[in-house]
Amino acid sequence: MTRSLVLAEVIDGVLAPVTAQAVTAAASLGGDVVLAVVTQEPHDLIEAASLVGVTEIVTVAAPGSDRDHEQALAAAAALVADVDPDQVLAGFTIRSSAYAAALGHLLDLGVVTDAIALRRDESGPLIATRSVYDGRVHAEVELDASRPGLVLVRPSTWEAAEPGGSPTVRSLAVDLPESRVRSVELVRPSGDVDLTRADVIFSVGRGVGSQENVAVFAEVAAKFGAALGSSRPIVDAGWLPASHQVGQTGTTVKPRLYVAFGISGALHHLAGMQNSQTIVVVNSDKNAPLFGHADVGAVEDIHDVVEQLNLLA
């Protein structure tokens, strides 16, 4: 019988949503699912970690912050040695990516990051699917069956496992090193928007052209009761605060309606919004890769469209 080890992601003492999604991915392979919770006070999270499909919870008390990837690496290595899994799963997030490939190297695991599907055919190798080249191509990657595999799953791709499971619980004592990366200061963004709660998001990209134009879109979005999102160049340019950014280093969103204005659809943006219920793409470039992921599209100048939208609000 196969055994999966899922490494939970804990942020600010709370289980991140991707953990329950990784549990679903692990449970789809059958067998045992061991969920490891590495954090300062793991016992506070036992109830949240008792997800349907989890057979055992293993806790590791770790004194460092949830951003300490050297601690996470040492804990994960000890957990793999202790649990002896056939595969290890975690979310494809900045915190996990910070140590996953190093873990793979140290323990000689096959590593696949940013997986969007996972399967094992009858006693064959584990096969993970990745979305590459701006989402235009899917790559099936086979993991060497002679070694455990390590797969990081793309957030918001699997459904979340429900609470209400009844796993056994035990703790594992691990000697954790002090991180060589010293924290000096943590800066949180001025939070004027929570994109994860929005039903409708209007999102602007490079095509918006200027900060003045961003203000026009912000005004029209507000009139329609939509939250304002953006791609990363808009935040890099300082035209919007980081809390507006959709994508891998921003926020992963799944609204009922996502309208992308002037966003071409780079990998890191796509990964943050492709599971939205309905996707509308407006771009003057008919070759923008994001059209390949849209339900509704228009090859138009976004400034003309927003002007017309303003009249309808």
Binding site: E185, L186, G250, T252
Partner: peptide, 15 residues
């Protein structure tokens, strides 16, 4: 500075 999801930034030092 290192970035995390949601616009969180941590200033760090390393040897």
């Amino acid at each position: 500075e290192r970035e995390f999801e949601g616009g969180i930034v941590e200033r760090v030092e390393v040897d």
